[in-house]
Amino acid sequence: MGTDMGMGTITDIITDMFQYDFMDNAFAAAGIVAVVSGVVGYFLVMRGQTFAGHALSHIGFAGATGAGLIGLAPLWGLIGFTLAAGIVMGLLSERISNRDIAIGVVLALALGFGLLFLHYYTSFATQATAILFGNVLAVDRGMIATLAMLAIVTLVALAAIMRPLIFASLQPELAEAKGVPLRFISTAFLAIVALAVSECAQIVGVLLVFTLMVGPPAAAQRVTTGLWSGLFVAAALALAEAWLGITLAYHTDWPVSFCIALLSALGYFAALAVPARRAAAAVIHRH
């Protein structure tokens, strides 16, 4: 190979990677999920509810292992539990769903239950790592179709409530005065987050949903202050990190979720450095 990294080499690497079906599948699944995660995560970060998202994923762990107990696919257990938990958190109003301590206690309990379910269904234990840390290389075509359908449902639901969601997130008092049903919006949003978390967990696992749902949107909000540009950057960044993560994993043999987590963190910290430089530039510009 030598020092020459020309176009030919890069093309070779890519053709080499895509000769395997499981790589095609991984890219498709990660792509679908990354876009949903980036977009839904943007609102999660805007609302300051990232911890609630984290809690939902932990509750999902209990759902996934519980589903194994009764012979269902983990995804449906994840969706069932996170959706129920999201709706309950929303109905208990924002005041409670933003309480870190209450959420912390519930998520710890959920992880405990997940462990209990594993304990009673020992043959399922091999899948525990996949649920916790994801296993995107094991995704099959059926799963891709399911993820695509879930993605459409998630994004359509989000688009339907987007306008009042933004209003209620930024200015709840005014939104209430203008007739926005705050509780319905926050409940519907957490249900959407629950779906996104369930999808995201299929790729990076319940413990690492932050890598796609919080890292990219948080970085996006550092580099751009516009609404649509922020959404676009969040989705694009999540997509880039997911795909690059898989590519990196393919060539290094490191776990995919680690690579995505690494890129997510790098992306966020790189973005942190951006505004300072910009502000300085603005000052210079003014003089």
Partner: peptide, 20 residues
Amino acid sequence: RMRGLDFIASSLDGERWGMP
């Protein structure tokens, strides 16, 4: 981290469903 324009725009017909 949101610009003033989008912040204010959120209140215009903010109670309506759909995308802004």
